[in-house]
């Protein structure tokens, strides 16, 4: 077992883990942050997507020890002060989810995209979620929602909006 300090959603945590433990196992089983899901546990469905120093990673394929010293952002840390992230709000408005199980991961990837590239295109959105699986088939609305959120962010950044 090894002692491990992690910074999750801006807060420090210390846990004891076996070195083979993955980041998602720590988030879910040790920290109770069950918003991050495991769909395949092999990095092939991306339901476990979190941000590591602002980059999307598959937390099921990340050794927890590799997350030391990095800023970990999970779905629980995306909304600020109960204010939904524009991508979260757009997912609600455009019904970009059905069963909802892949949704936290999808939101993390789409939010990453629009923050990086508010001028993103449909192809960019398809690319951003190309490693995700939504078995319910919410994709068309995920595309619409993400593009709408990007438009909202552009407007906000340009100081526009009402």
């Amino acid at each position: 077992m090894m002692e491990l300090s992690l910074t999750v959603n801006g807060r420090p945590f210390a846990v004891h883990v076996d070195p083979a433990t993955t980041l998602v196992e720590v988030l879910r089983d040790e920290l109770g942050l069950t918003g991050t899901k495991i769909g395949c546990d092999r990095g092939a469905c991306s339901a476990c997507t979190v941000w590591l120093d602002g980059e999307v990673v598959a937390s099921c394929m990340t050794f927890a020890l590799d997350a030391r010293g990095k800023q970990i952002t999970t779905i629980e840390g995306l909304a600020k002060d109960e204010q939904l992230h524009p991508v979260q709000q757009a997912f609600v408005d455009h019904d970009a989810l059905q069963c909802g199980f892949c949704t936290p991961g999808m939101v993390m990837s789409c939010a990453h995209l629009v923050e990086r590239n508010p001028a993103c295109t449909l192809d960019d959105v398809r690319g951003a979620v190309s490693g995700h699986l939504c078995r319910c088939g919410a994709y068309p609305n995920i595309f619409k929602a993400t593009l709408a959120a990007a438009a909202a962010m552009r407007q906000r950044k340009s100081g526009g909006g009402t």
Binding site: A44, V56, G127, G131
Partner: peptide
């Protein structure tokens, strides 16, 4: 190769 998530790591 692989997915965006995997390519990052």
């Amino acid at each position: 190769a692989a997915t965006p998530q995997i390519r990052n790591a």
